[in-house]
């Protein structure tokens, strides 16, 4: 006499439709190709997303942050505070916290510079109470795997301050 377990077992033994078997093969092949492509892309992409290159560098960086006003005057931003804003509160992300001190470059210097570039743009676009700053400028001094120092300058996009 056939039991319920036998019926389940027979149903499981029934071959799956061809389209499902083929679908699984194509899907698996696509995943393998995509993963290999992402690993290869990691040698080009500074962030090496999904390329699994942890602890890739032991680099450090420090930033001298200034606000550049409409007349070109450069105003330092001591401890990241200005016009009621606080850099650390606005950014609130460990790798870019207090960048005026020497910090470890999370995911490498190139990734950090890209993040900093975007962070300056984000701050420029999200500080409406600051009616003076035309753009932000960060002078970054970095050591790549203890070699350096190297210096580079990054600017945010220019803000529209309206008519004086």
């Amino acid at each position: 006499m056939a039991t319920a377990a036998d019926a389940v077992s027979q149903a499981a033994a029934k071959p799956r439709p061809l389209w499902r078997r083929r679908g699984a093969r194509w899907f698996a092949a696509a995943v393998v190709v995509a993963q290999l492509a992402l690993v290869a892309n990691g040698y080009r992409d500074p962030h090496n997303y999904f390329a699994f290159q942890p602890f890739n560098e032991s680099s450090t960086y420090a930033v001298e942050l200034v606000r550049v006003l409409d007349d070109g005057q450069q105003v330092p931003v001591p401890n990241g505070r200005w016009e009621g804003y606080d850099w650390n509160e606005l950014i609130d992300w460990g790798p870019l916290r207090s960048p005026w001190h020497q910090r470890h470059a999370f995911s490498g210097v190139d990734a950090m510079l890209d993040f900093l570039d975007n962070a300056l743009d984000w701050v420029a676009g999200n500080t409406p109470a600051d009616t003076e700053t035309r753009y932000w400028e960060a002078t970054v001094t970095y050591y790549r795997n203890a070699r350096g120092p190297y210096v580079t300058v990054i600017r945010s996009h220019e803000r529209d301050l309206g008519d004086p």
Binding site: A51, F55, N145
Partner: peptide
């Protein structure tokens, strides 16, 4: 299984071809 092995391989191979890493500079500095 492939993904797990890929993680170890990608991490190990990227360090293998990086002279700073395989030569000890990165870990020493850390």
């Amino acid at each position: 299984r492939f993904e797990a092995a890929a993680v170890y391989f990608a991490s190990g191979f990227s360090k293998l071809i990086d002279p700073d890493w395989v030569g000890g500079r990165v870990l020493h500095d850390r």
